[in-house]
Every structure is written in C-alpha cells, then in structure tokens.
C-alpha cells in the first residue's frame, strides 16, 4: 500500500484510512500527508461523507433491535433448526436409502423424490409459487364464460364460510366496488399441495381480476412485489401466516390501487 521510495501514499491506503483499517502509526503518517496534499484530502473527505451517509442510511433502516425482534429471531432459528433435524432423521430412514438405490433404475422414482425434496424447502417453493399460481389461475379461469367460479357471489355467506374453512381463517370477502370491481365468486385452487382461495372480480367493461389467498405457516410479513409475464400482471405480498396475490391484464397503476385497497381489508 505504501510507496516508500517515492514517499507517497497509495490510493489503497487512503481507502484504508477512511475505513479505519490502518494502524495508529500509519494513520498519523496519512494524516500528515493529507495536510500537504489537498487533492487526496478532498478525495478522502468525499469518501468519508459517503461512508457516513451510507452508514446512517442503513442504521436508520435497521434501527435498534427490540426485544420483540430478538424473540422473533429466536423462534426463527429454533424453527429452522427443528426443520433440519426432521430432514436429517428422514434422511436416515431405511426406506429412503432403498428409494435412493432405485433412483438409478427408474426415472419416475427419481422425479418423485426430487419433488419431495423440493417441497421440503417449503418457504422457497411458496415464495416462488404464489405469483405463478396467481398468474396461471387468472389465465385459466378469467376467460371462462359459464364457469369462472365454483360458487357465485349471490351465495356470499356460503362462499365466505367455505373458502375460510379450507384456508383455516375467517374470511370476510374483500369489497372493491369503489374501485370499480364487483365480486363474481370464488373457487379453490391448489397452492403448495394445499387449498388456497381464489376470488374473482369483474368491472363494468368485463375486465377480470383474481385474488389468491393461501396459507403459509412459515410466512413472513413482506412488502408488495410485482411481476409481469405474457401481459398478465401480478402483485403479491404476505404476512406471517398468509400470502396474497392479484393478477389481471388491467393497467399497472390500476392494479396498484386495487392492491392497496385489498391489502387494507386483508
């Protein structure tokens, strides 16, 4: 870092000075250098300002850890640790060893094991499945004329109870009439091997929108996310127990307003 022969300070050492990674001795030498070398001093000042600003940005965004945060982290580590133990014990089961031997013999067994293993990584599958299930459900059911839903909105109470029971929660069917969309009805769709609720809404121009609500026991509260594929736009988000996704072909701005309205009611 130091160019002794020319008695200069290298740029690497200037970085190390800013980042407080020099010995006390070298720090003094660099400080003396900066007094006489204003160009380097300016450089160091600008980097120090960057450091301070970035440090402040991240300190502010991740403020002091509260007791509740620590308790949540303890729970998370314990849950993941338990999950590992279960995986470990499953791995050692004799039937798995036999199945592993059969992998080479039949592609079907291999595929089945692959699915099992992948599903074992529950959260990952869920996070990537939710918007996909939402998009596909919209794509499959929104074009249906006669049977877009299994239970129509004229049986709202039954619909609410039925779907709520299948996804293990009380489900007040969200109302987005003030955003121009009336509830058509709902149905069950599969998500990560379990039932999730799909509600379908329609505006006066026949544009449809689907809402998926699926249970995710390992869920974490998350912000809104957006994805777009084949003209179908999907907004999705989650809380500690459920994931939510809406899909439609309406404008992104309109989708955003609808996502906000639904988020408030769910």
């Amino acid at each position: 870092m130091i160019d002794g022969e020319k008695n200069t300070i290298s740029e690497d050492e200037l970085h190390a000075f800013v980042d407080n990674q020099l010995s006390d001795e070298r720090k003094l030498i660099v400080e003396a250098w900066l007094k006489d070398n204003l160009e380097d001093a300016e450089k160091v000042k600008a980097w120090a300002l960057q450091n301070a600003a970035i440090g402040k940005l991240y300190t502010s965004a991740h403020a002091e850890t509260s007791a509740a945060d620590i308790a949540a982290d303890v729970k998370l580590i314990e849950a993941l640790s338990r999950r590992n133990s279960v995986k470990e014990s499953n791995r050692s089961k004799p039937w798995r060893q036999v199945a592993a031997m059969l992998v080479g013999a039949t592609g079907l067994v291999a595929a089945a094991l692959a699915i099992t293993t992948y599903q074992g990584e529950g959260k990952k599958v869920y996070a990537h499945n939710l918007p996909e299930v939402s998009r596909v459900s919209y794509s499959v059911y929104s074009g249906e004329i006669k049977h877009p839903v299994e239970v129509w909105s004229d049986e709202e109470e039954h619909l609410s109870q039925w779907l709520g029971k299948r996804i293990n929660r009380e489900l007040a069917l969200p109302n987005i009439v003030s955003q121009g969309f009336k509830l058509l009805g709902g149905r069950i769709v599969p998500l990560k091997g379990a039932a999730s609720a799909m509600l379908m809404y329609e505006d006066d121009f026949g544009e449809r929108l689907t809402l998926i609500i699926g249970q995710d026991k390992n869920g974490v509260a998350s912000s809104f996310r957006y994805s777009e594929l084949e003209d179908i736009q999907t907004y999705y988000w989650g809380d500690s127990e459920y994931g939510y996704a809406i899909s439609s072909r309406i404008s992104r701005e309109k989708m955003k307003v609808l996502a906000q309205a639904l988020h408030k009611q769910l």
């Binding site: 402040k56 403020a63 912000s223 809104f224 594929l229």
Partner: peptide, 24 residues
Amino acid sequence: QPQTVPIEDEIIPTEERMCDPLAM
C-alpha cells in the same frame, strides 16, 4: 424467471424517513 420490481415505497409508507430524504 420474470423480473420482479420492489414497489414497497410506492405503497407502504416507510416507517421512518431520513432528516434529509432527498440526499438519502
């Protein structure tokens, strides 16, 4: 996979803004 774009700032108000939000 399809691109996803974080939009949390558009919808969920950030808990705490910096004293100089423009700079931050």
